[in-house]
Design a protein around this nucleic acid. Sequence first.
DNA 1: TCAAAACACAACCATTTGGTTGACTATTAA
DNA 2: TTAATAGTCAACCAAATGGTTGTGTTTTGA
Lengths: 108, 108
Amino acid sequence: MNEQLDATFHALADPTRRAMISRLGQGERSIGELAEPFAMSLWGAAKHVRVLETAGLVTCRKVGRSQMCRLRPNPLAQADRWLRQWERLWTNRLDKLEALIEQEKESK
Amino acid sequence: MNEQLDATFHALADPTRRAMISRLGQGERSIGELAEPFAMSLWGAAKHVRVLETAGLVTCRKVGRSQMCRLRPNPLAQADRWLRQWERLWTNRLDKLEALIEQEKESK
DNA sequence: TCAAAACACAACCATTTGGTTGACTATTAA
DNA sequence: TTAATAGTCAACCAAATGGTTGTGTTTTGA
């Protein structure tokens, strides 16, 4: 249970892996496609994908000679829940959520 | 900017540090008080506090011979914003937030 | 059939992490 | 003044991280 949070936050702590998640947000991608934007070997990228996979953030399935990866929703929701616990403590105002969603638009 | 997210998620990826944050949610604590629940040297605990501090999650001020630490709100809000970006993509329903807040109550 | 593509795997490397200990400094209390 | 308390610091250690290369293996396309 706590290990899940460990793995999730650890997986998110690397900019390469966050970029991969962003990429996967646009749809299924192969490991090669995920590796391509980075100056990194294929095997290096595959290890990042493996971290995301063992953290439960991503699932992969074999399609021909490619490994197609896609996002899984549940684990981030758990991490988000943990964070929001503190946000609530600080703000004490739930309708601040609206303002955050506005900021999110311009940051993406 | 991205380094901030790196540091924040990395700081949160350790159960000891998350427990320290929980403790600090109840109010200011000294480093010794933060170390006490763990079977860990004082210096080990101080290093965890230093990670939280350099990630900007915590600030410390010297009070007598003690170092009093307390939470800072902003960085977690940024991490939360990042996570919610994906939650939105998956759910496409903003009012699911209410259900998550319900779950949060029983988990704490 | 045969070569290239997409990946798996082992082995290796440098750096970081999470932890320790022992000696030191500064503050407080008796 | 003296002794205990709270924390700092340097040095060290084992294990994990993030990366590489070289060598397979499987699948596809020509």
